[in-house]
Design a protein around this nucleic acid. Structure first.
Lengths: 347, 347
DNA sequence: TATAATAACACAATCGGTTGCATAGTTATC
DNA sequence: GATAACTATGCAACCGATTGTGTTATTATA
């Protein structure tokens, strides 16, 4: 059996005894309560340091009913966007003396629910969530809202009263991207996207449709593929494209990984990008810059998203209510045009 | 001012009162203590459910002096390897009813130290660390070891008594990779790596040297570049390579991002890969498969590393001491040979 | 039937800070 | 010199669950 005996922790009682004062005096001294003399504060401080005192956070939490912990639930951690977002959150949280506790839903609503339950047990001060693909029912957030625990969704958001959403204008971004492709001369544009019950993907699909409509291009549902946007999904779409009677002249995927894998497979089959088929992705994942040709994409800075989300939640927690009025925060996103969609001078 | 008034939480006292029993009976009932009758347990359960009882974790922690929280300190979150590792840890932790709390050192020892302090304050049950580039002095871990808080390093490890290390055999991997390049006919091999006071990089450098030595190739320090292995660092090395009197015939970088960015810049200057210069990376980052040519690399599965690390720590915490004897766990890693280093049939 | 053993529960101390109120000592005010 | 006002500190209840030690009623044993 390994030795887990903690070195007996020093408490304010120990300090009090050593100094011949009461525990309450020690407690107050440590936080520089005005009713304690400078001299006593100095002595207590010194003694605390000498004895290696460290405040017991459980006792504090128990008393104050506050943890300074922010819960984060995301579908998965290991995408560029997500890990950047978490990184941003951690940065802001750390600066404000908050801690973040993380869990993954692995894209399953059932895990999401149990994660929420866990966060609740952990008594997090606030919760940040990006929804799983298949989350429909939102009742697992009921307990959160009932307790008035601040709740912020980002990226994959929901419409829940009293919760804030941080998103980009997916409709606009997809609309612009589709327009761009059309401007480049494309008319048969494949769109690969995710479960359209998620705002993110329904918004993009709408933008795609709208752009087609405005250019009198017919919407062909055979050109729209709904999947999980993973590497293999991109390849699968590529195979289906290769089987088509008439090849599309562009592929607009809802993330870069999917766009890249689709492009790679097409290239393997002799299709030239962008001459034969233009490619566009989403997220500005580093991968989009390293492939050849570089992929046109939508810049969506995860780190900044994370920072905004966390800062907003913390403002909320600290009572800056003017922030809490905003129910939806829309961050802007930029089209990054690269070679994969430049048909004009790529002839 | 937003309404933060929590719905008054139900305690075991409330349940006790409602049922006309004592709080201790409620407490024991909820954990099915054998000395409580089935009937009482049933009643308590029912009442708890009815009243929406949720155990107060602070009180529990305070009593048990245990948090079921594992602290994780990493240089940065948003690399493929790191986010995969964290993902693996979270998976295992979640399965074992542990939570993970994450912080980043941003590659700065000073942040690392303050993060350790924070983790200590948070009273984590155990700590998982991958060191910052510039961490030399390890005294900021003193308090951890003094308290006998289990400490596990992974990837970038240290030699600290009573701590476990989880690594791959960096020496072996680099040795094999260099051998491979030599087998392909390379003799002037550039090696890009990180701060060699980190085991990871010193091990690889050693393996590189050893392979050269065994093949009677002279070690040329001008061919070794020590930097932070970021995208821009790869490019910078590429520029230096282009200025060399005699071009090298291979580049072996200590991570894929660096290898890729170096390769891209070389290609832009008309150098053909692998004919002119072979390229090899490290980590098997997805990016290594998407570039052209695909990059030879070392497979180092972050997710599995994370799982092993977390499982090991939890075993330790739960008292499976046969594990704690192993002070270093070496995971194996595989060379993945891809086109970027195949000179033989790449004529 | 008397005593021992067991089952089922209650009591109260405890974990370590926090904080409203009380109190002793000192200085100011009239 | 008596009262008011203020300063500095102590007392004790409290946060909510856990757990060792009683206590009572019930059943088993001799």
């Amino acid at each position: 059996m390994p030795d887990h005996s903690q070195k007996q922790d020093v408490t304010i009682y120990d300090i009090a005894e050593a100094l011949g004062v009461s525990p309450s005096t020690v407690s107050r001294s440590l936080k520089e309560h005005p009713s304690i003399s400078k001299e006593t504060i100095r002595k207590v401080r010194k003694q605390a340091k000498k004895m290696g005192y460290r405040s017991n956070i459980f006792a504090q939490n128990l008393r104050r009913q506050k943890t300074n912990i922010i819960g984060v639930i995301v579908p998965r951690l290991n995408s560029h966007f997500m890990s950047s977002a978490i990184s941003g959150m951690e940065k802001v949280a750390n600066k404000n003396h908050y801690k973040i506790i993380i869990s993954q839903s692995h894209e399953q609503a059932v895990n999401e629910a149990s994660n929420v339950e866990m966060m609740l047990e952990q008594r997090v001060d606030g919760l940040i969530v990006s929804l799983a693909y298949n989350t429909m029912d939102l009742h697992h957030f009921d307990a959160i809202t009932e307790q008035h625990t601040p709740l912020i969704f980002f990226d994959r958001v929901a419409d829940l009263p009293n919760s804030t959403n941080v998103v980009i204008d997916n409709y606009q971004a997809a609309y612009k991207m589709t327009n761009h492709l059309i401007d480049e001369g494309c008319s048969r544009i494949v769109h690969i996207t995710g479960n359209t019950s998620r705002n993110v993907y329904s918004g993009r699909l709408k933008g795609y449709k709208e752009a087609l409509l405005e250019h009198q291009l017919s919407y062909d549902s055979d050109l729209v593929f709904i999947n999980d946007l993973r590497e293999e999904d991109g390849e699968q779409v590529a195979r289906k494209i290769l089987e088509m009677d008439q090849l599309p002249d562009a592929v607009f995927a809802s993330n870069d990984v999917c766009a890249v894998s689709c492009m790679a497979l097409l290239q393997e089959h002799g299709i030239e990008i962008p001459r034969d088929i233009a490619i566009a992705g989403f997220n500005n994942d580093p991968i989009s810059r390293f492939v050849k040709p570089k992929i046109t994409t939508v810049d969506y800075d995860g780190e900044r998203v994370g920072e905004v989300v966390a800062q907003n939640l913390i403002n909320h927690l600290e009572g800056d209510d003017h922030i809490s009025i905003t129910n939806t925060i829309v961050l802007n996103s930029d089209l990054i045009i690269r070679d994969s969609s430049r048909k004009q001078d790529a002839g």
